[in-house]
Design a binder for these strands. Structure first.
Length: 442
DNA sequence: AGGTATTCACATGAAACTATTCTCTGAGTTAGG
DNA sequence: TAACTCAGAGAATAGTTTCATGTGAATACCTGT
């Protein structure tokens, strides 16, 4: 049976950043957001020349794919122990025995997903070569609209193994049945990888996991193993003990990389990705130092390096210097913020706009009440229906979580309790955000 | 002075409601035999 | 009679509203010295 690619990676924000960059590189004059006055004045010939130059110019990259997060290198550094354990746990599948359920812990960018994919790909190859019926499904529970509710997870699983399931309209247990029947059609081992499972459980509770672990008892032919991947180390402590015992049969912990390990990882990737001598002294060190500060997030380090390369290329530089790493960090942060703002629902955007407008006039901090008043005003201006203060309160705390604003609860004694809201974003960024919001709102 | 009670301005939680999107089902309608 | 249409029931989900309850400390109010 034809299978879709096993991995469908999460980091949407990263994708957007690279897309943006590539787009700008290709046709900077057509992108309205990036257009400045001087660029608008450019004649067509200049644009043609730009393209021609671009073609002639030798790229700094040899193989940019290596720096993309979905890339799986041939050898994974500093994770051999984990991979070994992983392989030994999965191996029984080759003898048509059910592998133990497995749990992987570790913070973002510690290689959990990478190692799992790596191991599963190898397993799949062998299984295919020897004609052993093993089926694998990878599912990222964080993906909005795909796998972030019980129904959707089960529906998606059913789809992955070849059933047709509508996006809505069916009762959830009906979808379970469809899934079960399809599973049990053949004698096979199914390995389900649930990535970012902690997010799912905090959202919808652990009943689903319980049901999943119980599915084996209803299967006559097939057998099901679950691999859970969690960013939160304390996650398993908070779930139902029944689930805990059956799901956490085996555990592997992925510790964060330290700066030295990060450097080696980067070095290996950089060697493949860039032409020789492109990387100058100190670049990798700086990159890994930045990432090590962020709990050893290798994904971040690699992204940083890639964006730095793209920036250097756009500036027609022949080498990447530590300076580009700084710019890259800045660029990533900016794109992240703009992207978050653009994708917020309208009401949330209005709240954000209200906060920005208020903070423009009065420096310092705001309170929920003030924001709500301003928000009401803005809504009336545009004939948008006004939400309750209760809801605005939630929206404000969401904005806080997204890191767009800083809101902390303070009690001012006789004068009540409220959130104190202030911005953490730099001033030049604020104007850009305001423009973005204006464009979206009017 | 020291202690207790109030009170403000929201925060926080839970449950219920709404609108939208989608499937499934069965009644009614239509066209061809 | 088979095929088609269409309305209605039922689900899932996101986004809200409603109602109820919680909260921390500056102040108001006592109390006894």
């Amino acid at each position: 049976m034809e299978q879709k690619p096993l991995i469908d990676f999460e980091e949407e924000s990263t994708k957007v950043i690279s897309d943006n960059l590539e787009q700008v590189t290709r046709d900077s004059s057509k992108d309205p957001k990036e257009t400045t006055d001087s660029e608008e004045a450019k004649s067509k010939d200049d644009v043609t020349k730009l393209f021609e130059d671009f073609l002639e110019k030798e790229s700094l990259f040899v193989n940019k794919k290596v720096l993309q997060i979905r890339y799986i290198p041939d050898t994974i550094k500093h994770r051999s122990k984990q991979i070994e354990i992983l392989a030994s746990i999965l191996a029984p599948a080759l003898r048509k025995e059910k592998p133990s359920n497995l749990f992987l812990y570790g913070k973002t960018g510690t290689g959990k997903t990478l190692c799992t994919t790596y191991a599963l790909n190898k397993l799949k190859k062998i299984a295919e070569a020897k004609d052993i019926p093993i089926n694998m499904v990878y599912l990222n529970c964080k993906l909005k609209k795909i796998a972030d509710t019980e129904y959707r997870v089960i529906a998606q699983l059913a789809r992955e193994i070849g059933s047709k399931v509508p996006t809505t309209g069916l009762p959830t247990d009906e979808v379970y049945n469809i899934f079960l029947r399809k599973l049990d059609e053949n004698k096979q081992i199914i390995i389900i990888v649930l990535d970012e499972i902690d997010q799912l459980v905090t959202k919808i509770g652990d009943e689903m996991l319980y049901t999943l672990t119980r599915i084996n008892q209803e299967l006559k032919q097939a057998q099901l193993s679950i691999v859970g991947i969690s960013n939160d180390v304390r996650f398993i402590e908070n779930i139902d003990p029944r689930v805990k015992s059956s799901l956490g049969e085996e555990e592997i912990i992925f510790p964060p990389y330290n700066a030295i390990e990060l450097r080696e990882i980067l070095q290996a990737r950089a060697k493949e990705a860039f032409r020789e001598d492109v990387i100058t002294e100190g670049v990798l060190e700086k990159c890994s130092a930045y990432a090590a500060r962020e709990h050893g997030d290798a994904r971040r380090a690699i992204e940083l390096l890639r964006v730095a390369g793209e920036l250097a290329e756009r500036e027609n530089l022949l080498k990447i210097t530590p300076k580009q790493i700084d710019s890259a960090e800045d660029k990533i942060e900016r794109s992240r913020i703009i992207e978050i703002i653009e994708t917020q629902p309208k009401q949330s955007q209005i709240v954000m706009y209200a906060i920005l407008l208020l903070l423009e006039k009065q420096d310092g901090k705001l309170e929920t009440g003030e924001v709500f008043e301003k928000y009401k005003e803005l809504c009336k201006q545009q004939a948008i229906n006004v939400l309750t203060q209760r809801r605005i309160s939630d929206l404000i705390s969401e904005l806080d979580m997204l890191g767009l604003i800083n809101a902390k609860i303070v009690s001012k004694g006789r004068y009540g309790r409220t959130r104190e809201i202030y911005l953490t974003i730099s001033t030049d960024m604020i104007n850009k955000i305001k423009e973005t919001l204006k464009k979206q709102l009017y």
